[in-house]
Every structure is written in structure tokens, then in C-alpha cells.
């Protein structure tokens, strides 16, 4: 963030999710953001058709974490030719659940006065990292021991130059909480916890060596299929 801006959860840049040529002139670009403990789908709608667009509505297919619109898509005035409007759609996680492949895939239907259009997009799973995800230290140690080593996944995150304090601060902005830090043989080991909106916890050990620019990330989770998506988020959060 710039001067005077609060640092917060990582927000990916908007991407084109629905090109105009596939939607009779409607172009949709968007991103996902976690703000003030809430989840938002931030959309830009552009009318590239020859007539005005009205009567917008949005619907999600069931998905892995129950993401659903928390209200209607608020497009209150007709969208004129060549006009773009920005809309922020609040989401909740109370929708129907179906495991998607990839896990963070979301299928969306958008309707207007012309037709119904469909597209898929993917959200960073850090969207689902909740604010009360700092695990008690005693519980962390017990959980770390209790989760079997088969449920541990290790990743190398290459070419980073942040020190452990900077990494810890950056990650905390997206609700990855450092529970403990230890230094052993010129390596900093950060023990971190993450809680997802569906109550799944992930425990992490981030190992930072001063002599190499590579981090080692070990993730322990009772639902190990989410680990690769959490690792992707570490990369994104640390690089942005």
C-alpha cells in the first residue's frame, strides 16, 4: 500500500473472466478481496454491445467452500453502450458445497436482459483465512504432534530475500499468524497457524536460512488436499 493506506489481505489484480466476444458484448473482469472480515467479489462490467444492458443478476454453482452471493448484484441503472461500472458483491460461505477441481474453482452465471452467460474463475484460498486464526501455543504443539507425518507436505519457495520478521508481518496481513519463532543454526523457523472459514486449521513451519534465498515450507493439515493451495498463497502473499 501507499502512504497512509492500511496494509491488508492480498488482493489479486482484476482479470478478464468473461470476454465480450463470448457474452454478446458483455465483458466482466474481477477479483476477490477480504476486507474487514468479509469476502467480496469486485467486478467491472463493460457493455460493448450495440444496446443498453439491464436486469443483471448473478448466481454461483455449488463449490468447495460454500461461497455464495450475500445479496443481489447491485446494478441500479442501465448500462449504456461503452460504459463500465464497478460493483462489489459481498459473499458469504453459507452456500451449498460440492468439491471442485481445482478446489478453488468457482462457476458463475450472470444474467442480463440479453441472455445468461457462464464463466469460471479461481480465488486465492487466502480469501478464506479468518481473522481469529491464531492458534493457542499449547494447542499448536499438541496439534502438530497429533497430525501424522503422512499429512505433512513440504514445498520449496524459491528466490526470496525477506527476513523472517518481514515475512511474518506480510503474512499476518492476510491472516497467517506466527505462533512462535526459533533460530537454530542460522535458520529461522516460524511456526504459523491458519484457520479457514469452514473451520479447517493448517499448521505451517516456514524455514528461512540467511545463506540461501530459498524458503522451506512444511504444512500439516487434517485435510491435506488444501495444502497445495495454501502453499500457492504463501508464494503470492510473500511476492506481493
Amino acid at each position: 500500500g501507499g502512504v497512509g493506506m492500511a496494509t491488508g489481505s492480498y488482493v489479486p489484480p482484476k482479470a478478464v473472466w468473461l470476454p465480450a466476444m463470448k457474452a454478446k458484448g458483455l465483458e466482466i473482469s474481477g477479483t476477490f478481496a477480504r476486507r474487514g472480515g468479509g469476502i467480496h467479489m469486485d467486478l467491472s462490467l463493460t457493455n460493448n454491445a450495440m444496446s443498453i444492458m439491464t436486469d443483471f443478476a448473478i448466481q454461483f454453482n455449488r463449490n468447495s467452500f460454500g461461497l455464495a452471493p450475500a445479496g443481489p448484484l447491485q446494478v441500479l441503472t442501465p448500462l449504456a453502450q461503452n460504459q463500465t461500472i464497478d460493483v462489489s458483491l459481498p459473499l458469504n460461505t453459507n452456500g451449498p458445497i460440492m468439491k471442485m477441481e481445482p478446489l478453488n474453482n468457482l462457476q458463475v452465471a450472470v444474467k442480463n436482459n440479453i441472455d445468461v452467460f457462464y464463466f469460471s474463475c479461481q480465488y486465492p484460498i487466502s480469501l478464506l483465512f479468518v481473522e481469529d486464526g491464531k492458534m493457542d501455543r499449547q494447542v499448536f504443539l499438541a496439534t502438530w504432534k497429533d497430525i501424522p507425518s503422512e499429512n505433512e507436505t513440504q514445498y520449496q519457495i524459491k528466490d526470496f530475500h525477506l527476513n523472517s520478521d518481514a515475512a511474518s508481518t506480510k503474512l499476518q496481513g492476510s491472516n497467517v499468524f506466527t505462533v512462535a519463532k526459533r533460530t537454530v543454526d542460522a535458520q529461522d523457523l516460524l511456526y504459523q497457524s491458519i484457520k479457514l472459514t469452514n473451520g479447517i486449521w493448517a499448521l505451517a513451519e516456514l524455514r528461512i536460512q540467511s545463506i540461501t534465498p530459498n524458503y522451506m515450507l512444511a504444512l500439516k493439515c487434517r485435510a491435506p488436499e488444501v495444502s497445495q493451495y495454501i502453499c500457492q498463497c504463501y508464494e503470492l502473499l510473500l511476492r506481493n
Binding site: R137, Q138, L141, R182, V184, D185, Y191, E205
Partner: peptide, 20 residues
């Protein structure tokens, strides 16, 4: 005392992970 025990437990965990 619990705090000291937890500090010690994290140190042991880190030691053990860094030097398996």
C-alpha cells in the same frame, strides 16, 4: 511455568526439525 514449558517445547521442536 506453563509459558516456560511451552517456550522450551517450541525450542525442542525447532531443534529437532532443523537437525532431524
Amino acid at each position: 511455568e506453563l509459558d516456560d514449558d511451552l517456550d522450551e517445547a517450541f525450542s525442542r521442536l525447532a531443534e529437532c526439525r532443523a537437525n532431524p
